[in-house]
């Protein structure tokens, strides 16, 4: 104890402290490690649909998986109400995508012991998002550490995330380990199959190159070696004349035959793109819960749309 603090730790002060302190302690050792064996089904909250889907596939009825993101809202940009964050606090585990996904997590008060970063240990596979840096004050130049966040679009990355989820769920319900491992194996096989199917689909793309309507396809791009480039266009909005001119300039510098979209673009946008020799293709990311089917069916439809491009004559694409 240094001299500065010693006077404050006088025994008179201690008497007060002691007099004022009698807070009872809960059974603090009771953590979230409750299992189905206790009759309580552990609750797991996720920050996006792919994680919730994988947790549901692996956990089965051993866990209750919740995704409170409202329909039609992109989980990446969702800002939950305080009451929803309190619900996340009450969960036994919170599945995070990692890679900076769901910015609200940075400002939510959540118990560190309940957080499961499914991208943990996969730093070498994270793709930089290439954000702007800035400088102010004595801290010097810095960015906010942005990396691309739609990791599950690389099915092999999704497999690694599924393993992390499985480990967390087995922790919660160790008595259900065997069945969860079995389900994980099935899921891994399905994702491996999806990876092969996507690789085959993308291998048949026109050689001219690929564009992305939004910078969310980095992991898909990295996995299948697509070397695509992104613009920031919204499916439901016209990009504006400046946007079209910028695109025309880009195409002059480096031609592209395909543009992937998160959702169906406006008909006028699609027609104008085709007029420029770029075929718009919907490739949904699946971040939000699909209206029908699940992650695999959604990715299956994506694959079919990409595979259909093979029928397009490469010469006609320009």
């Amino acid at each position: 104890m240094n001299r500065k603090t010693r006077p404050k730790v006088s025994w008179l002060a201690l008497l007060f402290i002691g007099t004022a302190s009698c807070g009872p302690s809960d059974d603090a050792a009771t953590t979230a490690e409750t299992t189905a064996a206790d009759g309580h089904v552990p609750t797991v909250y996720a920050v996006n649909y792919p994680l919730a889907w994988m947790a549901g596939r692996v956990g089965g009825d051993a866990v209750e998986v919740r995704l409170p993101v409202p329909d039609g809202v992109d989980p990446a940009h969702w800002q939950p109400a305080p009451e929803t964050i309190l619900a996340y606090q009450d969960a036994d585990r919170v599945l995070l995508n990692g890679a900076g996904y769901a910015g609200w997590i940075r400002f939510a008060s959540l118990s560190p012991g309940k957080l499961v970063d499914t991208s943990r240990g996969l730093d070498d596979r994270l793709v930089p998002a290439g954000g702007t840096t800035h400088s102010h004050g004595p801290g010097g130049e810095h960015d906010h550490g942005d990396v691309a966040s739609h990791t599950w679009l690389d099915p092999t990355f999704a497999i690694a995330q599924a393993r992390a989820i499985a480990n967390a769920l087995i922790d919660l319900a160790p008595d259900r380990k065997t069945e969860m491992v079995e389900r994980l194996n099935v899921l891994q096989a399905e994702l491996t199959g999806l990876d092969g199917a996507l690789a085959q689909a993308f291998s048949g793309l026109p050689a001219a190159g690929i564009l992305y309507s939004h910078p969310v396809y980095q992991y898909l791009d990295a996995r299948y070696g697509l070397a695509g480039r992104s613009v920031s266009w919204e499916p439901g909005q016209d990009p504006g004349e400046a946007g079209w001119q910028a695109l025309a300039q880009r195409l002059r510098e480096r031609p592209a035959a395909v543009m992937l979209w998160e959702g169906e673009p406006l008909a006028a946008t699609a027609d104008r793109l085709r007029g420029m020799g770029v075929e718009p293709v919907v490739f949904e990311t699946g971040a939000a819960r699909p209206a029908a089917g699940d992650y695999l069916t959604l990715m299956g439809h994506n694959r079919e749309r990409v595979a259909r491009l093979k029928l397009v004559d490469k010469g006609d694409a320009h």
Binding site: G23, S25, D26, P82, E83, L86, Q89, F107, A108, S109
Partner: peptide
């Protein structure tokens, strides 16, 4: 601190709600 602190010390709320967002 983290939300676990309140459960650990057995500190119920008399009014309002618990911490949810930075700045509270």
């Amino acid at each position: 601190t983290a939300p676990d602190y309140f459960g650990f010390r057995g500190l119920p709320l008399a009014d309002g709600r618990s911490l949810a967002i930075t700045g509270e």
